[in-house]
Nucleic acid binder design. Structure first.
Lengths: 203, 203
DNA sequence: CAATTATTAGAGCAGCCACTCCAACAATGC
DNA sequence: GCATTGTTGGAGTGGCTGCTCTAATAATTG
């Protein structure tokens, strides 16, 4: 018999489909991305597509899950650090790098277009949860060390950091003159200004 | 004969359809919003719908055009002012108020989901153009007066202000704990911090 | 090599949805 | 009242798309 022919080949094909779908989603939005177009991009037939994923939406969910996994792995890399402000700024900078993938903004928009669907919303909730879990301890540590403003609770500060990186993605998506690589520096500086303990009124 | 029965009634009906469509777009996204659902929301038949708009997308475009018009009118209100920084912060605050309409974030996402369509992209370009035209003179004036940082060119500063307000909308859309009315103050303060001439390193 | 099962392709189908079409109605002018 | 034209509703349709089904092929085991 032949149980699983080649697990690596299987996984690779699966990833290839995911990659193709990511491209098409980013280009045309979720509904605009027909399964036929995804198959064409991946160089496969529709039969193959539905052999790997039961549903078109499942591909999108798989992409989201990969992203969540990525954040989880990321969190581990900051474990030993002792400079909370530095960690926060590094995380923000990392987000800026993510925005460099030209498909990223388009994909984010595509997801936004269907985030009313319960299963998508569920995964997005999990994503923000993970992001908050990553950021929050460092914010709190920074507040205790006096390196981060304390006029806002940690959870709201996290929301605002998220707002900055999210807005950064969005701007990269819609503004052609906005080059992520060039603006990354400004993003970090803006985050620094936002986190600073002193008020914005005067230095 | 009967040329135009009642122009006001016509305009009102048209606006009613636009309003209903805005609601459904915000709730379900563009593709998720079926014309049937919009008609139900508006309390009309599909015949009426297509009597007022040739296409579903035309309703969305009409909504965008109303928004652009709104920004244009807004610009006039700031004409006589002499405090550039104050004007910029007022404009930012006004954006925060816009985000209070619970349909706004959803609609923005819906538009984002199909902004790859040429005609939609065209109108969005016009929208950003108008927004830039509104902000930029005040940024430049502020720079000359020493009230706004000069380490970035005016156009990039405008992009970043746009990023802040856009991110604000997005956060209001995705984060349930993010109450626009409560966060408006922080938005203005963050804009102030961002615009400040001194560096973010130390006060 | 034979047997079994995973994998692949693509033709076809069922359902949905934007939009059309027509018939009835309302409002105006004569 | 009659004619004309703007307005409204809803049944119907054509096209598209996600997905199924079948049959052929490749890979693996004994």
């Amino acid at each position: 018999m032949a149980r699983t022919v080649d697990p690596e080949r299987y996984a690779a094909r699966r990833l290839a489909i995911i990659d193709a779908a990511l491209t098409v989603f980013a280009e045309r939005g979720y509904d605009g991305a027909t399964t036929a177009a995804i198959c064409r991009q991946a160089g496969i037939g529709s039969g193959t597509f539905f052999h790997y994923f039961p549903t078109k939406r499942d591909v999108l969910l798989a992409i989201l899950r990969l992203g969540i996994e990525d954040v989880r792995e990321r969190a581990a890399r900051y474990a030993g650090r002792t400079d909370p402000l530095g960690v926060l700024l590094d995380i923000v900078a990392e987000h800026a790098q993510d925005a460099a993938d030209p498909r990223m903004p388009g994909f984010v928009r595509a997801v936004g277009g269907i985030m009313t669907q319960p299963d998508v919303a569920e995964l997005l909730r999990e994503d923000t949860e993970v992001q908050h879990a990553l950021l929050r301890p460092w914010v709190e540590q920074g507040q205790r060390a006096g390196a981060v403003r304390t006029d806002l609770p940690a959870s709201r500060i996290v929301s605002w950091l998220y707002l900055l990186t999210d807005g950064f993605l969005g701007q990269a998506a819609s503004d052609d003159g906005f080059v992520p690589a060039d603006e990354a520096e400004v993003l970090v500086d803006t985050a620094r200004r936002f986190l600073a303990p002193w008020s914005g009124i005067a230095p």
